[in-house]
Write a protein that binds this DNA or RNA. Structure first.
Length: 119
DNA sequence: ATGCTGACTATGT
DNA sequence: TACATAGCCAGCA
């Protein structure tokens, strides 16, 4: 107990961990936008960090990262140019999320709406 | 310790 | 309508 008053706790959750916690709450068959997740994680206006946090997710984390799409309702392109993009779309379709003819999801229809007044 | 990089979005010209 | 800019975390060399 040498920890002094006001000291930072041993494992203070990082902002990224908070982002992951929010993403875990997105139900199957629904999607949320980066900005939406950022706000729910207590990082309003920091949509970009959500993208970073997801990119940093370790494999097998159990976090449904595929349920996070950009404000246009589309799967964001990875700079890496891997197959993650196609995989994400495939996973979403498998959950029942449908893409329009232009490849975009109708957010007004599939967007996750958490209860409790927050959005 | 510094600097670069990476899954975004709102706003202004 | 299209393009540029600001905002600002965490891991790694």
């Amino acid at each position: 107990m040498t920890r002094r008053r006001g000291a930072i706790p041993p494992s203070a959750p990082t902002r990224w961990e908070r982002v992951w916690a929010v993403v875990r709450r997105i139900p199957r068959g629904r999607v949320a936008t980066y900005g939406q997740v950022a706000k729910l994680a207590g990082l309003p206006g920091q949509a970009r960090f959500v993208g970073y946090a997801l990119a940093a997710l370790p494999d097998g984390s159990g976090v449904a990262w595929q349920r996070v799409v950009n404000a246009s309702g589309r799967v964001s392109a990875r700079r890496d140019g891997g197959n993650a993009e196609a995989l994400q779309a495939a996973m979403l379709r498998r959950e029942g999320v449908r893409f329009g003819a232009d490849g975009a999801i109708a957010l007004e229809r599939f967007r996750w709406r958490p209860r409790g007044g927050r959005r």
